[in-house]
Design a protein around this nucleic acid. Structure first.
Length: 252
DNA sequence: AGGTCTGTTCAGCT
DNA sequence: TAGCTGAACAGACC
């Protein structure tokens, strides 16, 4: 599930449903998900407190707590989501859980185990949020270096929030081959790329997730370009499975 | 049985 | 040193 649009939905769900409820107990026993904290450490810091404000930058969320308490950082990894007031999941899929005094709960649910909960997460290595980056910042950050455009978009220290699917959708909308080096891009290309990124992100948030946008719906066997019907090309770029339209996204 | 997967991190290369 | 690539991580699913 989670790229920027899904994480924004998760943040909004916390804001709507988990603030101002007193935390009675914390299950932080999964020491892989809660690393580098020892079991019990997050619990000791949060029990008795309330969540007050939910923030997001890229795919990282952090939630402030009352009375000078630490922030709770949450990351959904590759397959996690936030389950509020749902029955416990089987198979230890609830990797981290807050139980509220009112009997409800907030769970970080993940069939895999790549989600992450930690206190006071370090945001220093995250670039500006992909939905809010200014034109000047985008030109300067994304346009630097020699990597393929797609690798640049996926680098969370350059821009925070773009994942594999949103990168492909953005490059398709901008008409750029994902394998081209950013060296080849002019300022107009970078501005068009930023426009495409913002539009794709907005659409995905509004429609409820990155799976809803046009190119993403075509991935998989037999996918065709939503604009011209050409068969999509497929290759590994920057270590990730990549789809693009050979007609609309010509090689440099 | 083996390959795949929406993310992050770190060793190791240029 | 900076920039970049690919493997490793965990575990379900096809």
């Amino acid at each position: 599930m989670p790229e920027l649009p899904e994480v924004e939905c998760a943040r909004a769900a916390i804001e709507d449903g988990a603030l101002r409820r007193r935390i009675a107990a914390v299950d932080d026993a999964d020491s892989y998900v809660c690393r580098p904290h020892a079991p019990g450490e997050i619990g000791a810091a949060l029990e008795g407190r309330e969540l007050t404000v939910a923030h997001r930058r890229g795919k990282t969320m952090w939630v402030e707590t009352d009375d000078g308490g630490p922030d709770l950082g949450l990351h959904l990894g590759m397959a996690g989501w936030i389950a509020i007031d749902e029955d416990p999941a089987p198979n230890h899929w609830d990797r981290f859980t807050l139980s509220f005094e009112d009997g409800g709960r907030l769970a970080l649910r993940d069939k895999r185990r790549l989600s992450r909960a930690r206190l006071d997460p370090d945001l220093a290595d995250l670039g500006p949020d992909a939905a809010e980056v200014s034109r000047t910042q985008f030109r300067r950050r994304v346009g630097r270096g020699t990597a393929p455009i797609k690798a640049r978009l996926l680098d969370q220290s350059v821009l925070a929030g773009v994942g594999n699917l949103l990168a492909d959708e953005t490059l398709w909308r901008a008409g750029l081959d994902p394998r081209r080096s950013v060296e080849e891009l002019g300022l107009e290309d970078l501005d068009e790329l930023r426009r495409a990124l913002r539009a794709a992100t907005r659409d995905a948030i509004r429609r409820g997730g990155v799976h809803t946008v046009r190119l993403v719906r075509e991935r998989g066997r037999g996918g065709r370009c939503p604009a011209c019907g050409s068969g999509l090309s497929r290759a590994t770029v920057s270590g990730r499975t990549t789809f693009w339209c050979p007609q609309h996204q010509p090689p440099g």
